[in-house]
Design a protein around this nucleic acid. Structure first.
Lengths: 237, 237
DNA sequence: CGCTTAGCGTCTACAGTGTAGGCATCCCTG
DNA sequence: CAGGGATGCCTACACTGTAGACGCTAAGCG
C-alpha cells in the first residue's frame, strides 16, 4: 500500500517512506478502530507514523479536518453499485452494507452521525456526499421526482442511522457485560420504577440486528411505496 | 428555581448561594445551549458560577459524568404521560415532543446519540432510562408481549433519532447559509459527479421537519401494526 | 556543474484542558 | 458551645492542539 515513494531517502532501512495524505488518514483510522476516538491525538498519531506530530499539519489543517478525513475514508468503503433494477432491493442491500460498515468501525460511528451536524452541507468533504448523490440518482433512475426522491432518502437514511445507533448501544451491553452482569446492572434500578426494563433482561441478550434492520426496512419500503402511490398522502388515518 | 438555599451565607450581597447539583447541571446546560459543547469546560463553568472549577468535582465526578448529567437533565424535560388510550396516538405525540426537545437543545443532540454508545445500559443515569421504561409500559398496557414491545420500541426510537439527526443537519444549512449561499456551496461540487444533489438545491431550502416526521411515524406505525397482526412475521421470504 | 528555491521534517514554546492533593473555612449537628 | 464533616479555594502536573522558526533535502534552472 505504500510503494508511491520514489525517494531514495532510505539507504539504511527505508523506515521513512515519504508521507502522504492517504497514509496519514488510514493509520488514523486504524488507530481509532483499535483504541477509540480519544486515542487519536496528534502526538500519538505522529508516534504511530514515526514522525514528528507537527508534520501532520501538512496533510490535515486541523484535528477537525483529520476527523473529517477519517469519516470520509470510512464512507468510501461503501460502494453503491446500481446492479439491480428494483430500487427497493437496492436500498435494502445498501442498508445492510451500511450496517456492516458501522459494525466494522464502531468507534467511527459517533463521527458519522456527529460531524455533519457541525458542517454545512455544501462544505462537507465530497466523499461524505457521494452516497447521498448515488442514492438520489438511483431513486431518480427508478422514476422518482426530485422532491419525492429526497423524501424517500430522508426517511430511509434516517431509519438506518437510527437503527445503527440502537444496535451499537446494545452491542456494548453484550461486550462489557455477560447476561448475568447485565441483569445485575439492571438490578441497580429501583424495582418499582423500572419493572418493564428489568423484565426485559432476558430478551435484551439475544438481539439479531440484521433481522431487525431488515424487518424495519421492509416496513419502511412498504409504507413508502404505498404512500407514494396514493396522492392522498396527508397524515390523517 | 434556586430557592433551596437556606444558607445565611451572604450578609453582603448573597452572591454565593450554596451550590447544588441541580444548579451546576442547569447552568452547564445553559452554557451548552448558548455556546456549544466545546464551551463546557470545567474552568468556564466555574467562572459562570463564580466558583472555583475544582469545586465542581463535588457534584460531578468527571467531565464525562457532567455530560451525562446534562443529557439526563434534557431528557427529563420529556414527560411521557399516558393520557390517551391509543398507543399509536401516544407514540406519535411523544415523537413530536422529542423532536421539539431536540430543536430546543440542538447542541445537546450529539450527547443524546453518543453518550449511550460509551455506557452500558445498566450503568446509565436513571433519567436516561426513564423514557425507555415509560414507553415500554405504555406498549405493555396496550397489550404487547415484552419481546414485541421491545421490537416496536427499537424501530420507533431508532426512527425518531434518525429523523432528528437528519433535520438538525439541514437546520445548520439554513442557519449558516441562505439559499443563494447554499447553492453556492453546492456549486463547489463537480457538476458531473453530483448532478442530483445540485438539482435539489431549491428543494433543500423548504423542509418541513414536523410534517416529515409525522409522515414517517405514520408509515412506521402502519407497518408495525400490520406486521404484528400477522403472525407470519419472520424475515424469511 | 553550481546555484537557487520551494517544500518538508523537526524542534521549541505557549495557551488551555482535566484532574489529584492539600489546606482553610464554613455550617450544621450534638 | 464545641466538634466534625462537608465544602470552597489554591497550587501543581501531565497532556492537548497549534503557531512559528530553523535546517535539511530534493528538484528545477541557468
Amino acid at each position: 500500500m505504500t510503494p508511491a515513494a520514489k525517494t531514495t531517502t532510505g539507504p539504511a532501512s527505508g523506515q521513512k517512506p515519504r508521507l502522504n495524505q492517504e497514509i496519514v488518514l488510514s493509520t488514523a483510522l486504524a488507530l481509532v478502530d483499535a483504541e477509540g476516538l480519544d486515542a487519536l491525538t496528534m502526538r500519538r498519531l505522529g508516534q504511530e507514523l514515526g514522525r514528528d506530530p507537527m508534520g501532520l499539519y501538512r496533510y490535515a489543517a486541523n484535528r477537525a479536518a483529520l476527523l473529517d478525513g477519517v469519516t470520509e475514508l470510512v464512507l468510501n468503503e461503501l460502494d453503491v453499485v446500481p446492479d439491480h433494477p428494483d430500487w427497493q432491493v437496492q436500498l435494502r442491500r445498501i442498508a445492510h452494507d451500511l450496517r456492516l460498515l458501522a459494525l466494522r468501525h464502531p468507534n467511527v460511528v459517533p463521527l458519522l452521525v456527529t460531524r455533519p451536524l457541525s458542517t454545512p452541507l455544501g462544505l462537507r468533504p465530497v466523499g461524505t456526499l457521494r452516497p447521498l448523490e448515488q442514492i438520489l440518482s438511483l431513486l431518480s433512475a427508478a422514476g422518482f421526482a426530485p422532491a419525492d426522491a429526497l423524501h424517500v432518502y430522508r426517511a430511509y437514511y434516517g431509519f438506518i442511522y437510527g437503527h445503527i445507533l440502537n444496535e451499537l448501544q446494545e452491542l456494548i451491553v453484550d461486550a462489557d457485560e455477560d447476561e448475568a452482569l447485565l441483569r445485575l446492572g439492571l438490578h441497580r434500578l429501583p424495582a418499582k420504577e423500572f419493572p418493564q426494563l428489568r423484565a426485559l433482561a432476558p430478551f435484551l441478550a439475544d438481539y439479531d440486528g440484521e433481522a431487525e434492520l431488515d424487518e424495519g426496512i421492509s416496513i419502511l419500503l412498504a409504507g413508502l411505496s404505498a404512500r407514494l402511490a396514493d396522492p392522498k398522502k396527508t397524515t390523517q388515518p
